[in-house]
């Protein structure tokens, strides 16, 4: 299996190999069926590239993944602040109105500060009711002094996140690394696939050659 690298995107086979392949291709009858040697049409190549980028964009772990408890820690602090409590205690408003107003107050005041969680907060809106349910659990975790990024909000509970990242010292923490493991494997998976399939196809006779099907039958 000698490979020719002079024009790698044209062909990876030697002239002799191609000649042999072409001879077999044209002279044997596969049960009355023949195969052509056409390339993938350009628009279809475009579609495949689009598919890959769609796959990456649509499943980027930030979308639809459960939020970490860390992004709501400031919400909890603000919820317990006097200005927000005043809104929540406002007897002139209905519960729904005061909840919405208080949440608005929290989000607008947090927008003013630079935070690594701003993007995630935009992705994961939380209602006052849900915040009330998770707040005591977050406070409890803060009291214990654990890293809130190791916890996720699942419904009304704050649960240990299902991330498993191995640290240099061998311990495992439940924190998502910036390179998500699954996402990284997926990229390599596709790259290796694309590389192998290009090699496989470039070993065939070049697509400018069209087999003559009149020889076999």
């Amino acid at each position: 299996m000698s490979w020719v690298f002079s024009r790698p995107l044209y062909s990876l086979s030697s002239k002799d190999q191609n000649k042999e392949a072409q001879y077999i291709w044209e002279h044997e009858s596969l049960g009355g069926i023949a195969e052509n040697n056409n390339p993938l049409p350009r628009p279809v190549i475009g579609l495949l590239v689009l598919t890959f980028f769609t796959a990456m964009m649509l499943t980027m772990p930030l979308y639809g993944q459960r939020p970490t408890a860390a992004i709501f820690a400031d919400y909890v602090t603000l919820m317990n602040s006097s200005s927000v409590q005043k809104v929540l205690d406002d007897k002139t408003l209905t519960h729904a109105e005061s909840d919405a107003k208080a949440m608005k107050l929290i989000t607008t005041s947090l927008e003013k500060f630079e935070s690594p969680y701003n993007f995630q907060r935009e992705q994961h809106h939380i209602t006052m009711n849900q915040l009330r349910m998770v707040a005591p659990q977050i406070v409890e975790l803060q009291r214990k002094g654990v890293d809130l990024e190791e916890y996720t909000i699942v419904g009304a509970t704050v649960a240990k996140a299902t991330f498993f990242s191995i640290q240099p010292d061998g311990t495992i923490i439940n924190k998502q690394p910036w390179w998500d493991k699954g996402y990284t494997i997926a990229i390599w998976w596709f790259v290796i696939f694309a590389f192998s399939i290009i090699i496989a196809v470039k070993r065939l006779p070049h697509f400018t050659w069209a087999p003559d099907h009149t020889i076999a039958h």
Partner: peptide
């Protein structure tokens, strides 16, 4: 509650099922 990385991986591969389908 499967490992989150596995879901991310499966999700990308799931869209890439379109590759054989288109071909």
């Amino acid at each position: 509650p499967l490992p989150e990385w596995l879901k991310s991986f499966a999700s990308v591969e799931g869209v890439l099922i379109l590759v054989p389908a288109i071909a």
